[in-house]
Design a protein around this nucleic acid. Structure first.
Lengths: 196, 196
DNA sequence: CGCGACGTTGATTTGCCTCAACGATTGTGG
DNA sequence: CCACAATCGTTGAGGCAAATCAACGTCGCG
């Protein structure tokens, strides 16, 4: 299996070029960390200083409401970045939890090192700009769906876009991501697959 | 009143420094365009090549569903950027309309010029990265609200964050942004302000 | 084995929508 | 300057999508 750092380099170089010395510098700033299933990567209230790049496994970020119910903001599997950007950017206490849905390996970099990397390796600015533009485009779709589509359509859209995650994720996590109860998603599925 | 380009420069230099020659180059790429109230900036189906920086007035982007109903993705007043990132990034036909809610002045730059500017003025990469990080942080909040809060709370949150837009925007536009019908928002307001 | 996590099903409730009607305000042309 | 049409906000009656609550079956795992 590929080395963790090689996965990161491959992902970056799909967008911008890196020299060998760039890679060495990056390697020295990113730490490989392992999380067991159900383990927390970060909790509500903390001020986020870390970005996570998933090498293997699956993380999720979620908001816990006043009644204790979880609402999934995003999942992150191999080659995805995940953190609480709101807390990371504004350095305010996080409202989100991040935890592991599977045993997971991540590469972590802290804010200060990341800033230093931007200075030393300017193409990383572009890499990050491109990644974020893509994220914004995707999240824009999600907002539109939440505003204008019933749950059944949102579910079909999710399958079409992230179908490879079905079977890997528990169904009630998908329900939470879609903004419905597990019972209702079950109901939707029954109706959808009745006539096939 | 401030010159349009000066507004743009001021916004950029709040994040990164610009030299005078940088400014000249930028000035040569951005065109000042005026839109009358109700005029379209962009329509569904087009492949977006343009970014808009609002100098004066107010634009909105929205999705029109299969029944013809509009769902507001965002508003943009002075010093905001607006475009359809999904179409802009992936160069696919846009699903969004953008139009003017007031008589509006915008500075426009096309993709090719913007790419050229990134090459010639690398700090713009950082500027854009920072702008997008902020957008992502904000939109993340909106998703959380849509998933976990009833409409009344979302409305209060909107007022707290964008209160300065109330009175400037028609109420039914805010309803659309929040994902409820105008009638229901009216209802919410009645209940909220009954006891004050 | 036994317990907790997961999915399903059904009965009831509720947040929000639909549709229709009605003032108030704005603006536009005669 | 008035008449008329849009546009906008409000109110109310009835309806639907999705939530809540509760019970039950299955599976994987310590």
């Amino acid at each position: 299996m590929a080395d963790a750092y090689e996965m990161l380099f491959r992902h970056i170089t799909e967008h911008v070029p890196l020299t060998d010395t760039d890679k060495e510098l990056i390697r020295s700033c990113y730490k490989l960390v392992h999380y067991r299933k159900r383990q927390y990567v970060q909790k509500e209230g903390e001020i986020v200083r870390i970005s996570n790049f998933v090498v293997k496994g699956c993380l999720r970020s979620y908001y816990r409401d006043e009644n204790g119910f979880a609402h999934v903001l995003m999942f992150a599997v191999e080659n995805w970045w995940i953190s609480d950007l709101d807390s990371y950017v504004y350095q305010t206490p996080s409202q989100l939890f991040i935890d592991a849905l599977e045993d997971t390996d991540v590469l972590q970099v802290c804010r200060e090192d990341q800033e230093m990397l931007y200075e030393k390796i300017p193409v990383l600015e572009r890499y990050n700009r491109l990644i974020m533009a893509r994220s914004l485009a995707n999240i824009q779709h999600r907002i539109i769906g939440n505003l204008s589509k019933p749950a059944a359509e949102r579910y079909l859209f999710f399958r079409q876009k992230y179908g490879f995650l079905e079977g890997r994720l528990p169904q009630h996590q998908i329900a939470s991501y879609l903004g419905v109860t597990p019972e209702f998603l079950s109901n939707i599925r029954k109706k959808l697959f009745k006539k096939t």
